[in-house]
Computed example of a mutant assay.
Amino acid sequence: MARAGVTVERLAVAAAELADEVGFEKVTVAMLARRFGVRDASLYSHVKNAHDLRVRVALLALAELADRVATALAGRAGKDALVAFANAHRDYALRHPGRYTAAQLDLDDDTMATSAAVRHSEMTRALLRGYHLPEPAQTDAIRLLHSTFHGYVTLESTGRFRHTPRTPDASWSATLDALDALLTHWPHAGQPT
């Protein structure tokens, strides 16, 4: 690519594409400069450093994932919403492994507060309202869902399920059934906080 047209947005998209190809942790400013056919130094007028580039990829990934989840959730409630929500996460993680890893980047509080992470939180809480979960059960359920989805897709994407006779899809479906049952019958009263 020619030097003309290099923008922060194009750099973030190109870095996200590289992350999916080689892994998020392997993306460097030098690698990105080679993709654009420019010297490393010329990119520093667009990004401060490698960390700034990583944050931009994380923000891009969070926004893409939020858009996909919002589309999947539209008009759904209860178990149907849970399944759509979960499948949107799983599909994104498997199709875009580098971007998914980027979305897990620990962002500072100010960046997090202005990112699509806020939309993720709002959508998760909206999903859980269908299960009538009050606080603090809602926060606990959000942590459970994130841990389950993240753990599952991380194990699946690294091939950990290939040595078993049951397909990952079958286990995923059973996991979602179990989560729905748990959310439907969440323990509320008398539970220690």
Rank of each mutant, 00 (worst) to 15 (best):
E9V: 06
A77P: 00
T154P: 00
T114W: 08
D140N: 05
H132K: 14
D20R: 05
A113H: 08
E17R: 05
V8C: 03
P187T: 07
G5P: 09
A102V: 09
L43C: 03
R39S: 14
L65P: 03
T164L: 13
T111R: 09
Q191M: 10
V27Y: 03
D108R: 07
T193S: 12
I142G: 05
K48F: 06
R129A: 13
K26M: 06
T124C: 10
Q138N: 12
Y131D: 05
R166Y: 13
A81S: 01
A15F: 01
A126V: 05
A66C: 10
Q104Y: 06
L94F: 05
R54K: 15
K26E: 13
L155A: 13
L182V: 13
G190H: 10
H146I: 13
P192K: 03
A189Q: 15
Y152S: 06
L144Q: 04
V83F: 06
W172I: 02
S42H: 10
M1F: 11
E156A: 09
G98R: 02
A16C: 03
R119M: 04
V13I: 14
A81Y: 00
E122C: 02
F24I: 04
T28P: 06
F36M: 03
R3Q: 11
R39F: 14
S121H: 15
A81M: 09
F161P: 01
A174Q: 10
H185M: 09
G37C: 03
T154K: 03
P97A: 04
T154I: 01
L43K: 01
Q104V: 03
A126T: 12
H132L: 12
L65F: 03
L144A: 14
S121K: 14
R119C: 04
K48W: 05
L176P: 04
A116G: 09
L179G: 04
G98I: 07
T139M: 05
T167I: 05
A93R: 00
R99A: 13
A77E: 14
L94R: 08
A181Q: 14
G98D: 08
L65T: 09
H120G: 12
V47T: 07
A33Q: 06
K79P: 00
V118H: 11
L128H: 08
A4G: 08
W186E: 06
P168I: 00
S173E: 15
L107F: 03
A116R: 00
H188R: 15
L144K: 03
N87W: 04
A66F: 01
P134G: 07
D106I: 09
L133K: 11
